[in-house]
């Protein structure tokens, strides 16, 4: 049999079709059998306000209110009794502590002042990991830490404050390394987000074999957490268009 004859017969197989009724029935069956999972979003905003759903939120909220009322009453009574109440910065972010530390560093007089600055740096350092998710906050932190390092580096100890000064230098060094880590994480997160968006955009584009190969490698890098390498490959495939 010739190629042409075989192809003609093969083309005739294209006439094999399912019955119209079966096609419609199957479609309805499939779409009705497995409804998409309901999500809070699909159920609508008002769903969240049903009384039964509010109970798990209301109980912790009530406890928080009680605690807040207790703290307020305690502070009020302490003030009435003439006791000095410690002031917590209203906006106790690392940047706030760092700005306070920067100001305090300009007028260090007693060893207690040095100790106070060391404590501020310690508090700022422990809050840096959560604050570093915000790029604007990270920028402020980096700026303040650079200034603090400069100021702390210029300080010299004397017999009176040698211990406090050593602690301050130690805390300043911890702060620097935590800031560097946060900065690196921030860059990593930004790259991750960028690569994720580029992957989404590239998914919908028609790619040549070579580009498709690069794209699958980029996705594998992304899934393995190698975001810089993934970015490099996506840029390569964009340039090869």
């Amino acid at each position: 049999m010739e190629n042409k004859q075989i192809i003609a017969q093969l083309k005739a197989l294209g006439g094999v079709k399912p019955e119209r009724e079966w096609v419609e029935d199957t479609k309805s069956f499939i779409l009705d059998s497995f409804q998409p999972e309901e999500t809070a979003h699909s159920r609508g905003f008002l769903f969240s306000f049903q009384p039964a759903r509010l109970i798990p939120i209301a109980i912790p909220a009530f406890i928080v209110m009680l605690v807040a009322a207790g703290i307020t009453a305690y502070l009020y009574l302490q003030t009435l009794n003439g006791n000095k109440v410690g002031v917590i910065p209203a906006n106790d972010t690392p940047a706030t502590y760092l700005v306070l530390a920067q100001t305090k560093l300009d007028s260090l007089k007693k060893p207690a002042d040095i100790k106070e600055v060391a404590d501020m740096l310690d508090k700022a350092a422990s809050a840096i990991p959560s604050a570093s998710k915000d790029p604007a906050e990270t920028a402020k932190i980096v700026e303040s830490v650079a200034d603090i390092n400069k100021k702390v580096g210029a300080l010299s100890a004397n017999e009176e404050n040698v211990e406090e000064m050593a602690e301050l230098k130690d805390k300043a060094s911890v702060l620097s390394s935590k800031t560097a880590e946060a900065l690196e994480e921030n860059i990593q997160n930004t790259t991750k987000e960028l690569v994720k968006n580029l992957i989404n955009i590239t998914e919908s584009q028609t790619l040549s074999d070579e580009q498709a190969h690069l794209f699958s490698q980029a996705k594998a890098d992304y899934n393995n957490g190698n975001y810089s390498q993934a970015l490099e490959k996506i840029l390569m495939l964009t340039n090869s268009k």
Binding site: G14, K27, L31
Partner: peptide
Amino acid sequence: DKKQKKFSKIYDNYVESIYRFIS
């Protein structure tokens, strides 16, 4: 819903060829 509509389109486009392929 939107998802069902999208899938419905895919089904309409390919049901015949997939049936033929299997058949």
